[in-house]
């Protein structure tokens, strides 16, 4: 699949996964790469970028065995962004489907 498509919507997908609850890198990567064909590494730079722009915050939490995990938590800013992205995506994807003749 064209990686340019993915690039634009991956931020939104990561935000959407975190909307369901706080999560850590490996888990987010697993959730994404289970559905979209992409390298697991892809989510880490996205998470870092989202943390930098204030869409998510991070905290460390002990795991049963092994070192503490870095958890990501969606902030109100991130939630706002997700909602806006969702609206935009809906309009855009419907328009594209309409043009290429898919079913909406």
């Amino acid at each position: 699949m064209n990686s340019q498509y993915k690039k634009g919507v991956l931020d939104m997908c990561v935000l959407a996964i975190l909307e369901k609850g706080d999560s850590y890198g490996y888990d987010v990567a697993d959730a994404l790469s289970g559905k979209i064909d992409l390298a697991d590494g892809t989510v880490y730079p996205i998470l870092r970028k989202l943390a930098t722009d204030g869409s998510v915050t991070t905290y460390l939490q002990e795991s049963q065995n092994g070192p503490p995990r870095k958890y990501y938590h969606l902030t109100p800013i991130g939630k706002n962004r997700l909602n806006m992205d969702r609206e935009e995506w809906k309009v855009f994807s419907e328009a594209v489907d309409d043009i290429i003749g898919g079913t909406v």
């Binding site: 890198g25 490996y26 888990d27 790469s33 390298a39 697991d40 590494g41 995990r69």
Partner: peptide
């Protein structure tokens, strides 16, 4: 941390390195 999690889930370092890109 990704390697830690993956190894715990039963994967090898080599597999994980490929999955990361």
């Amino acid at each position: 941390g990704y390697f830690d999690e993956g190894i715990e889930a039963g994967k090898t370092e080599e597999e994980l390195a490929v999955k990361l890109g």
